[in-house]
């Protein structure tokens, strides 16, 4: 056998009594685990769930995930530290990720990034004192036809200018939207798009993690 197989053990039967998550979150976690042939495969969605609970990944959150997956906290940490989207430090309510890869760079993304840093006072990888806005530069986010592009909590805005980026920062701080609506932000702060988005979406992000169906989209069934 070339590859050691990932093991996952049946969790200790009492682990849910010691859970740090609410009953509702536990139900959601149980549904996620049930989708995979092996408990361990649920580690990635459960890490998002842990971020949703506390805003970022705490040691306690990762330990909780390890109990659900039947693996050790170190094995969970190994996964969490591999990916850029799992934040192991506190993140602001709004995470601005400015693409600075080649296609965006060619159309001025460095100026957009500079404008975000300057207007927010937050450099790459940092969060403001209030815990409201975090800023990072990102590698290609798949919006090259609408370059330069950025995301706020992974909701996309295409065709951004340095001026619009500054307006975005001011708007986030003043309006403090509960839900980040991608279509609304595109309308306010974007211009050219990669393609016609065509369809108005009613959903949006509510935290610095992707607003995807089972993990915190508004209106989740």
């Amino acid at each position: 056998m070339t590859h050691p197989r990932p093991e996952s053990h049946t969790p200790d039967p009492g682990f849910r009594e010691r859970s740090i998550w609410s009953k509702e979150t536990q139900e959601r976690a149980a549904r996620i685990v049930a989708r995979y042939p092996l408990r361990r495969s649920a580690v990635m969605p459960l890490l998002y769930l842990a971020m949703r609970e506390e805003g970022y990944l705490t040691d306690e959150g990762m330990e909780e995930v390890s109990r659900w997956c039947g693996i050790t906290p170190a094995q969970v940490y190994a996964v969490a530290s591999f990916y850029t989207m799992y934040k192991r430090e506190p993140v602001g309510r709004y995470l601005i990720s400015c693409c600075t890869s080649i296609s965006c760079m060619l159309l001025g993304s460095d100026e957009v990034m500079h404008s975000i840093e300057e207007s927010s006072g937050v450099p790459h990888g940092e969060t403001d004192e209030e815990g409201l806005v975090s800023v990072e530069h990102a590698e290609c986010i798949g919006a090259c036809g609408g370059a330069p592009a950025l995301q706020v909590n992974y909701e996309l805005i295409e065709g951004v200018t340095p001026e619009k980026a500054r307006d975005l920062v001011q708007w986030l701080r003043a309006a403090r939207p509960e839900v980040l609506d991608g279509d609304e932000m595109q309308q306010l702060f974007g211009t050219r798009r990669s393609f016609d988005w065509a369809i108005r979406e009613e959903e949006g992000a509510i935290g610095p993690y992707p607003a995807f169906g089972p993990l915190g989209t508004v209106g989740e069934s």
Binding site: G142, Y154, A211
Partner: peptide, 11 residues
């Protein structure tokens, strides 16, 4: 992971 919206559509 960055494709939150496409993931929602597919879901």
């Amino acid at each position: 992971g960055e494709y939150a919206k496409p993931a929602r559509r597919v879901q």
